[in-house]
Design a protein around this nucleic acid. Sequence first.
DNA 1: TTGCGGTGTTCCGTATCGTGGAACGTCGTT
DNA 2: AACGACGTTCCACGATACGGAACACCGCAA
Lengths: 282, 282
Amino acid sequence: MAITTDAIGAANGFAGVQSVTRACVLLDVLARDGQLGVTEIGRRCDLPKGTVHRLLMTLECRGYVERAAQDGIYRLGLKLFELGSLVLDRRELVTEGRRHVVRLMEESGETVHLGIMDGGHIVNLAVQEPPQAIRVVTPVGGRSPIHCTSTGKAIAAHLPPSDLQALVAEYGLPRYTANTLSDMDVWLADLAEVRVRGFAVDQEEHREGGRSVGAPIANHTDTVFASISVTGPTHRFTSEQIALFADMVCDAAADISRSLGAGSQAVAIIRGNSRKGVIVRE
Amino acid sequence: MAITTDAIGAANGFAGVQSVTRACVLLDVLARDGQLGVTEIGRRCDLPKGTVHRLLMTLECRGYVERAAQDGIYRLGLKLFELGSLVLDRRELVTEGRRHVVRLMEESGETVHLGIMDGGHIVNLAVQEPPQAIRVVTPVGGRSPIHCTSTGKAIAAHLPPSDLQALVAEYGLPRYTANTLSDMDVWLADLAEVRVRGFAVDQEEHREGGRSVGAPIANHTDTVFASISVTGPTHRFTSEQIALFADMVCDAAADISRSLGAGSQAVAIIRGNSRKGVIVRE
DNA sequence: TTGCGGTGTTCCGTATCGTGGAACGTCGTT
DNA sequence: AACGACGTTCCACGATACGGAACACCGCAA
């Protein structure tokens, strides 16, 4: 499937500056498919060779792409890494959250994710994997769906209904496993439960054999904008374990929120009204 | 000073696609100065408001920039973080090197840098800081000069003379401290010494009060392309300590090179012909 | 309230600029 | 030697981005 120039929120007519949009598409293609030649890139995004070549040269001048010395194969450049690192530096969330992420990993012995919402998806800002043999691996910077992960649902639960409608209208509730909540009403009911409990649970809704527990993080304006979660194989996520993990995750989320300046009432909401147990689908 | 649209290697006439180059400049400005409004960005890169606004909207559609909800202030977007993370995933160097970086930090008790050369500078791909109170802090993704850091000199020492000439012709040997080697001949002599010893030493040449020891890393084509170093305050880098650090750093560099598939003769070169001591400038 | 200086945003005629097809040079393979 | 596939260069055309100016909106001060 060719990556198109359709913009993210292009319901309106604005398509953006053509060549800039195209340059972005080239980067998307390189991000998805690794390293490619001019012709191949042209094929994948329906552009003539000449155009692709010109755009790539421009991006190369700026360090956004680079090419293997001999064969003229292009790949993403270090400039992107440089800019990407700057993005995180500006987000106190990561500096504040990192030690909690590590501690939570050590406490739980499972993979910990710290995520933020961006354009209908969850972006993993930090990941800490346990030294376990069987563990979940998700790359830093990777994106996860919002409707079937505990990080996603922890945030979604605190979004205004209109935003949820808009999100679902745009992305739908695509099915990943047999357990994915792909019905709007069921999903909304689950989110309501998340609000009551204070934490979200993903029971193999995203990946077969994987469960996770996540809690929301609020900032100084008392708005939920991020979340933290532990993830692991189903057999280590029994009802009792989930209850234990939930306590740890909520504590961590509350700590991070406080250190970001969230008010005590927001923290109380995060911690949930009741810690009633989770019914595990066996 | 306004950031211009001059390309990196624009000795030739090719200036790139105008709007793409401009978009890159906008990102550079945002990277340097944090978050800015449309007018201010326009001022800093000499573009009319309308143009800046149109370009920013395009970049926003793609997630390369984002804006605070209320005030229309732009900043770098998470898409850049996403792409930046991918750049590293593709570089086996980082996955192979990270555990060595951590081990070296623990062994030495000092800050460890893993760097690669890009466009006349060293980019720090990984940094590990010790839990010391006094320590060197350099952000991941940050750039360092090549002529006055141990990471830089470790790589430069194994570059062909013509490349060195070209680098100096373009960037010069700017002085950072009183110790900076800013004379070409002196610098080349230092690099020759690096080749003999197998490791490079920076004696407050980059930062007042900071010393570092670095060794080159070769890949499967037996080409030096990266380096690893320990950095710390001068008082912890005596002649004896430097000798100890040098052993550790060279071992780590050799290990990483081997795991990247470097041949044994390349590793031998990296390890240097003689480990004769370093004369410390007091 | 009424201005004012500062934003961000939109508009539209113009000519600049990017476009893309086709031709070229250069490999490696048959 | 001929082919195919690649990256690169070229150039006339016209679509496209440009940018100045007008607009809308705020917060502030008089």
